[in-house]
């Protein structure tokens, strides 16, 4: 089922692009090949997850609980067995998914990015990475001009068609965190700060 969604999203992106609704470029695509990766991305637009799932054939994804209530999306998210972000065992389910060999996509901001504001990550993704002992593959997504933003209606379309730039960065190595005997809470904070700084640098925010 996850593969079906992936192919459908590939088709959707191809279609929208052919319609001239947007253009896109992807750097470092080969870094998403292979199985069992923990992918984290910023979330400027509603199309981000469409791109990521299209790029990764068998991806598990943490999805907001509302999508189990909307009739159109309920079927797919249930069939694909995506992880519900309101699950009481959220962290455990994510770690189990990675242990099982899935590739997991998380948007650590927890919601769409606020334009012009440096990304602020929840620590869940950092905690999951440390517990699953899984290096992180960061994906930096930019969309110029902004479209399908948080706080704007979907029909507020910019005058020029937007350009998506998607950069898959080299893995963030967790070894020095795993070797440290600090407590989980402290390691997660350090890792989270490292990830935020990385995204801020790539998105050219002053730290």
């Amino acid at each position: 089922m996850r593969q079906v969604i992936s192919v459908a999203f590939q088709g959707y992106i191809w279609f929208l692009q052919r319609c001239g609704l947007f253009t896109y470029e992807i750097e470092g695509r080969e870094r998403l090949r292979g199985k069992n990766k923990l992918v984290i991305a910023n979330h400027p637009s509603l199309l981000d997850v469409v791109f990521l799932i299209a790029l990764i054939k068998q991806a598990n994804c943490v999805v907001k609980a509302e999508l189990w209530r909307i009739p159109v999306t309920r079927g797919p998210v249930t069939a694909a067995q995506y992880i519900n972000n309101h699950s009481t065992e959220l962290i455990g389910e994510c770690v189990a998914s990675l242990d099982k060999g899935d590739t997991l996509i998380i948007f650590p901001e927890g919601t769409r990015s606020v334009p012009g504001v440096p990304p602020k990550f929840h620590r869940g993704a950092a905690n999951i990475a440390l517990l699953a002992k899984k290096n992180i593959t960061p994906v930096v997504i930019e969309c110029v001009p902004a479209t399908l933003l948080k706080g704007k209606r979907w029909y507020h379309i910019p005058a020029t068609s937007p350009h998506f730039r998607i950069r898959v960065l080299p893995e963030v190595d967790l070894q020095h965190y795993l070797d440290s005997d600090a407590m989980q809470s402290r390691k997660a904070r350090r890792l989270n700060t490292e990830l935020e700084s990385l995204f801020m640098e790539k998105l050219q925010f002053e730290s």
């Binding site: 962290i91 929840h122 620590r123 869940g124 905690n127 407590m183 989980q184 809470s185 997660a188």
Partner: peptide, 11 residues
């Protein structure tokens, strides 16, 4: 302080 921190706090 999140739920994971709470585990460390209890320890």
């Amino acid at each position: 302080i999140d739920s994971i921190d709470a585990v460390d706090m209890v320890i």
